[in-house]
Amino acid sequence: MESGIDIYLNSIRLICPNLTDPELSQYASKLTFRELKKKELFLQSGKVQKAIGFITKGLIRSFFIDQYGNEITVGFYSEGDYATHYPAFIAQQPSSYSIQCLEPTTMALLSFEDLQWIYKQFPAFEKYGRLIAEEILKRQQARIESFIFQPAEDRYLDFISRQPTLFNRISLSHLCSFLGIERQTLTRIRQKLAHQ
C-alpha cells in the first residue's frame, strides 16, 4: 500500500515530471504529517493558516458562518486536494473560512516558511506552485460562475458529474449549503431527475 508521502510525491511528479529525485527528497524532508478526527478543525476562521495541507486520506469541507449564524459550505476537498484558504495563506492573513474534517483525515503539511525556502532553493517548485494556484483559481471562478449562469438543477448535475465519488460521502445539508439551495428544492430536483 502506498504511504502518504508516496501519494503526495507522485501527485507532484504528475504535474511537474522534470523535478529530480534529490529535489523531491529535499521537499519531502520539510513535510510533517497530521491525523485529524472527524469534525476536527484544520483551520479556524479568524486564524492565520501556518501550513498548507495536502490530503492523502479523508475528506474536508471549507465553510464560513453568515450574519444569521448559518454555516455556508464553499468547498469539498478529498484525497489529492489541498486544504487551504489560499489567498489568506500566501498573504499570511487571518482566514475568513474554517476547514473541517468530514471523515478521519491524514494530511501532509508544509509550513509557509518552508514553502518559501523551497521556492528559493529549487526554482522548479515555483512552477508547481503556480500550476496549483492556477487550478485553485479555476475552481473558484467556476464556482462563482455557476451561481451567476446556472439554475439550481444544473449546479446539482454539474456537482454529480465533477465529483461522482463525493456524493455518498457528504451530508445532504452540506450539499444543499454548497449548492445554495433549500433541502426541499434538492428533493424536488432529485425526484424530477429520477422520473426522467
Rank of each mutant, 00 (worst) to 15 (best):
N18R: 08
N18Y: 10
N18A: 08
L19P: 02
L19Q: 02
T20I: 01
T20R: 04
T20K: 07
T20F: 02
T20E: 10
T20H: 03
D21H: 14
D21A: 15
D21P: 06
P22T: 04
E23C: 08
E23I: 05
E23V: 05
E23W: 05
L24S: 09
L24G: 06
L24I: 06
S25I: 04
S25P: 01
S25F: 04
Q26V: 08
Q26C: 08
Q26D: 13
Q26Y: 15
Y27H: 14
Y27S: 04
Y27W: 10
Y27M: 08
A28D: 08
A28E: 13
A28H: 06
A28F: 02
A28P: 04
S29Q: 13
S29E: 12
S29I: 03
S29P: 07
K30L: 15
L31G: 06
L31M: 15
L31F: 14
L31A: 10
L31E: 03
L31V: 12
L31S: 09
T32K: 13
T32I: 06
F33G: 09
F33K: 13
F33L: 13
R34T: 07
R34F: 02
E35G: 07
E35C: 11
E35M: 09
L36Q: 07
L36A: 10
L36D: 01
L36W: 11
L36M: 15
K37Q: 14
K37E: 14
K37F: 05
K37H: 10
K37D: 13
K37A: 14
K38I: 11
K38T: 14
K39G: 00
E40P: 10
E40N: 09
E40K: 12
L41W: 02
L41Y: 11
L41P: 04
F42H: 04
F42N: 00
F42D: 00
F42C: 00
L43S: 03
L43M: 08
L43W: 04
Q44L: 10
Q44H: 13
Q44N: 10
Q44F: 05
S45I: 01
S45L: 04
G46S: 09
G46Q: 06
K47S: 12
K47M: 08
V48D: 00
V48C: 11
Q49C: 08
Q49M: 07
K50L: 09
K50A: 12
K50T: 12
K50R: 14
A51N: 06
A51T: 04
I52C: 07
I52D: 01
